[in-house]
């Protein structure tokens, strides 16, 4: 069934602004994100896209503006009025965060199985056999062999680490996942595999995703909608293929024309 049926937004962002002293991080960003929607935030380094992502994911308090999220009980809550306990519960159950550098999102000194099982244990799962079986299932879904379940991620390649990080995030069936350049720093062939995996998981699980990337090919493959940022402002937004095939703003035209054609 179509994922575009739901009429109630999952996330509502109102005029989010973040200053670093006098300098603008991001300015007056507003949008709604609906269940099952994938939104790409694109722009070059320093455009404010990571600042915005951190504000959205409660990792960085905005200077002004409000962000509301629809909790599992259906109520809309202002994210910055949640208690710390509520915020943490949200982060480890209903949300995921995929870091560019997998080491930032993994526990490098514990096994792959424990990395995936951690969220389950955090929400009270106390049966070792079940935790391990679930971890094994998820490793399979991200194409990591079962016999690596007891290995530390330190012994994994970059692409495997990233896939492990994704499994670790998705094990609690989150509804919203934030991704910060998830394919950055990987070889092209590794990137392709990861992108395909992400595309399938996002579609199968009906995830809502906010993905920050400077790679327009990633945005085209994964996202439904796109926001182009420059100097802290959203300068153009819309349907992904519309913005990429018919860019309107000078900066977007420059971005699109800068892609190397293979």
């Amino acid at each position: 069934m179509s994922v575009f049926m739901s009429e109630e937004p999952l996330l509502q962002v109102h005029n989010v602004t973040r200053y670093y002293g006098d300098r603008i991080g991001c300015s007056n960003v507003s949008f709604d994100l609906f269940p099952g929607e994938v939104l790409a935030i694109v722009g070059e380094s320093g455009s404010g896209k990571t600042t915005l992502l951190n504000c959205l994911s409660t990792r960085l308090a905005p200077t002004a503006g409000a962000i509301e999220y629809r909790m599992r009980d259906g109520s809309m809550r202002n994210l910055y009025q949640l208690t710390e306990a509520e915020r943490r519960l949200l982060m480890r159950t209903d949300w995921g965060f995929v870091h560019q550098n997998a080491a930032d999102g993994l526990r490098m000194n514990v096994s792959a199985g424990a990395n995936v099982g951690e969220r389950l244990m955090a929400v009270g799962d106390r049966h070792y056999g079940n935790i391990r079986a679930t971890a094994d299932d998820w490793l399979g879904r991200v194409e990591i062999d079962s016999d690596r379940i007891d290995d530390d991620p330190r012994s994994f390649s970059g692409g495997m680490r990233q896939r492990l990080q994704i499994a670790r995030n998705l094990v609690t069936r989150p509804r919203l996942v934030f991704m910060d350049e998830p394919t950055g720093g990987l070889d092209v062939s590794v990137q392709a595999r990861l992108l395909d995996l992400l595309r399938r998981l996002v579609a199968d699980l009906g995830l809502s995703v906010v993905i920050v990337t400077h790679d327009l090919a990633v945005a085209r493959l994964l996202s439904h909608r796109i926001m182009v940022m420059r100097q802290g402002n959203v300068i153009e937004s819309g349907l992904t293929d519309q913005v990429l095939d018919d860019p309107r703003e000078p900066y977007t035209q420059l971005l699109v024309s800068s892609i190397l054609q293979v």
Binding site: F4, E37, H224, R225, G238, L239, Q242
Partner: peptide
Amino acid sequence: EPRQILKLRDD
């Protein structure tokens, strides 16, 4: 809206 267009493309 983008999501309306995506829905139109689906069905």
